[in-house]
Design a protein around this nucleic acid. Sequence first.
RNA 1: GCUCGCAUAGCUCAGGCGGUAGAGCACUUCAUUGGUAAUGAAGAGGUCCUCGGUUCAACUCCGAGUGUGAGCACCA
Length: 638
Amino acid sequence: MPKITLPDGSAREYENPVTVMDVAESIGPGLAKAALAGRVDGELVDSSCLISTDADLAIITERDTDGLEIIRHSCAHLMAQAVQRLFPKAQVTIGPVVENGFFYDFAFSRAFTPEDLQAIEKVMGDIVKENLTVERSVMSRDEAVEMFKEKGEDYKVQIIESIPGDEDLSFYRQGEFIDLCRGPHVPATSSFKAFKLTSVAGAYWRGDASNEMLQRIHGTAWGSKKDLKLFLQRLEEAEKRDHRKLGKHLDLFHFQEEAPGMAFWHPKGWSIYQTVQRYMREVQDKNDYKEINTPQLVDYSLWEKSGHASKFSDEMFSVESENRMYAIKPMNCPCHIQVFNQGLKSYRDLPLRLAEFGSCHRYEPSGSMHGLMRVRSFVQDDGHIFCTEQQIQAEVADFMTLLFAVYKDFGFDEVILRLSTRPEKRVGSDEVWDKSEQSLKDALNATGLPWELVPGEGAFYGPKIECSLKDCMGRVQQCGTIQVDFSTPGRLGAQYVAEDGSRQEPVMLHRAVLGSFERFIGILIEHYAGAMPAWLAPEQAVILNITDKQSNYCRNFEESLKNKGFRVSADLRNEKIGFKIREHTLQRIPYLLVVGDKEVEKGTVAVRKRGGEDLGAMTFDEFCTLLNQDVASFGRGA
RNA sequence: GCUCGCAUAGCUCAGGCGGUAGAGCACUUCAUUGGUAAUGAAGAGGUCCUCGGUUCAACUCCGAGUGUGAGCACCA
């Protein structure tokens, strides 16, 4: 006689053991129809799960995050079934849920085409109409291996054989299709209301580049057609914001074949770049960093000493000259240590914070490049803090504060923190790694913010905190980092004289707030959809005359604004005002200043914001005040 | 780097079952001096990514290369 307690606190008693679906039905037919699964005493189960003892139960529907995940996971099965109906020789592998959807990897003799995708989607629709019941079953490992061997599913056999332990495995069957799965799943194939296959691409078996390539089909699935539509609209919006597209439309930068992965910055793009750099320089100055600059070419031997050559030689550009091998610097740290090493340092000099807008070149694999986001030539807002072990925590904490403030100025309020710990390939003793990881953990805890542990993802010389920001599309972008390094200073002979007169090796903290200017500007472009806040906008205002009569007045106004340090221009072309407004609005210029006879007479300009808002007539001083305020607010609250 | 796709005017893109190409915007010129998202007309603009192959003939078909897109792998 199970007593079922529902989330609202109400309880129901049943005479016999009941399934989740039974409970849903007893509550109402609407709920029964919507029920996808249940959460019994906190654990997700199928709707067919039998409850025989008193329990807390929540019925999961598409409205729950869990419900959506179940739909997506089940949709992966649905797709696999459709694929195998169309292509019986395609072998199934894995099909997990991802953000907004799912994918399934197939081993097949050829690549799937967009037409295949359409056909698959159609068969998926057929299976939904067939309303096949999804049934869970349990099998021993041997039985399962036997079954999949018979079906010729070599990959499934491998998967089952690699699952540790020897408990029985659960399987889900719908019609002729059966797949190994932990579940839970939807009760029947009629549960799908809105899905779409979005793309097909190669993916390595088990994520290992030395393995064969499978065919990965991505799909998206939602609880309702409306949600699917909203999602597709969001994709469209993201496409419109693509920094590569906007970079061209707004004339910010370009790429060309002769310099793959290296941006040609145009005047407007470079203006943004310079503004960001000036800002960072100011922030660094205020925070007691000393800016330096180090060579682009450095003898290869330095990279061998630092340990980079042995790990990254394939990705370093090198230059031979006068029988010497140089590397074009792929990073700045070894050079910063050279600066530290000049002159004997005392503990009194620590912490010593060196900063450089360091131009770096890396031969990134061709397939990894992506607009400004991943390039072969970039400039880091790099910095290295030389300090003692005792100073690490305070330095990391200060850095985090600085980073939060900078992100806020750029209009990013949400920061996501992750700690990456020792990778397999690394230098330094475990003891040193213990120490480094602990100091970062302490610093993270001190921020009071949540953080995530990512084991094995640290740099080869030390663990790191990665700081990601969330842009206005909800996308997470990794930008800042701070890394503890107990190894490299020693390798490159950095020392300081301690209080007791002994020679000690300093700890080095590698840190960057923006990461690279290129990538960060790419993120900014997409975040603002090209409509940069006034402080960053390459052109802050443009003055538009209505007829030639006002040209001189416009030129004078422009000149006066320029003298105040604003980035403005005048558009005195013989064009209609509507045309000029349209053009400069499309160029996302924050303020359009219209001048006709009325304005000349009164000594004003008519101010229009790029969004279309009319701010009315303003005098020169009034407009300067407005623009100054706008610029001073940075991107906060934008 | 891997799988698959793509590469045509400055930009966005059409096009042709193999016979050297077209639109809109931009550009130039002329007319127009017009008050808040496109004034009208005319003109100019292309080695159809590169190199090979097939063919009487290749921008089109085939192969390779380069770049690029999606995804995978990589990311000091």
